[in-house]
Computed example of a mutant assay.
Amino acid sequence: MRPPEWTGQLWLGRDYGLIQGELGCTAPHAHYAHQLILAPTAPVTIELDGQLCTARHLFIPALQCHAILEAPGPLFTLYAEPLTIDAQALQHSLLGVELTLPALAEALRHCPRRIVQDRRIEKALAALDRQLTGKVSASALAAHAHLSLSQLERLFSGQLGLPVRRLVLWRRLRLAIGLVLAGEAVTEAAHGAGFADSAHFSRTLKVLFGVTARQALQQLELRLLD
């Protein structure tokens, strides 16, 4: 059986990530990111909403439950923030692109971005990001956007696809992953991203990505992109 660790390189942009390397198997999970797996050497097998899928090109929409069951050989996997990158635009931008990190990163950099049309959501998201390192109050976010708490929850669930609490966890996780890969210890990274402790961070990573921090982060070499 293949080891569960992820190895290789991670190029991390503002709203996307690219991994070139080997992926271990995962438990069933769902995350707030579109995922695209491109396997140049051998097909990958995943379980997607209870169905087995085997192919060299696999697209996993945001919030879809899935598990990586078999991923032989090196491959590329892409994660894209659905708030800014549309699923159809993502796939269209990568058609015919050479399977190298520089070529994929360039294609993603030029992929059309979605614009948040509702200024209230934009204000709430900006306030959320400012508060990530400490306690995030949904009521304070609502007040900053001149909304009631119930209005904010309806807007987040209806337009972003996530309730406020889950979006906070997703953004905390992105921040903590970046801190770990930049060299911080897991405990310091967890606190720096507003998690109560490293155990909370690890549980969240396992729920959203199906792997532990040790499996996913220790063997990846990070490059931060502009």
Results as ranks from 00 to 15, higher is better:
10 L>T: 02
115 I>Y: 06
36 L>E: 03
118 D>I: 01
68 I>Q: 05
25 C>V: 09
63 L>G: 00
121 I>Y: 14
20 Q>Y: 15
125 L>G: 08
65 C>F: 01
110 H>K: 05
67 A>Y: 12
27 A>D: 15
52 L>N: 10
66 H>G: 15
44 V>A: 12
51 Q>E: 14
92 H>I: 01
9 Q>T: 07
33 A>M: 03
41 T>Q: 14
48 L>E: 14
60 I>T: 05
43 P>S: 07
31 H>N: 10
79 Y>G: 03
115 I>V: 11
78 L>I: 15
45 T>S: 14
60 I>G: 04
93 S>F: 03
91 Q>L: 13
84 T>V: 09
40 P>H: 07
28 P>T: 08
93 S>N: 06
73 G>D: 12
20 Q>V: 06
128 L>A: 09
112 P>Y: 08
103 A>D: 09
22 E>V: 14
34 H>A: 01
66 H>E: 15
89 A>P: 05
68 I>V: 12
49 D>S: 13
73 G>K: 08
104 L>V: 02
98 E>A: 14
21 G>W: 06
9 Q>P: 01
67 A>Q: 15
32 Y>G: 05
28 P>Y: 08
64 Q>W: 06
72 P>G: 13
123 K>W: 00
111 C>M: 03
104 L>K: 05
83 L>F: 10
72 P>I: 12
82 P>S: 13
105 A>I: 02
97 V>M: 14
69 L>E: 13
81 E>P: 02
77 T>S: 03
124 A>E: 12
74 P>F: 00
58 L>S: 02
108 L>D: 04
38 L>Q: 10
66 H>T: 12
51 Q>P: 00
30 A>F: 03
9 Q>K: 09
82 P>G: 09
104 L>Y: 03
30 A>P: 01
113 R>Y: 07
38 L>A: 02
66 H>Y: 14
32 Y>E: 11
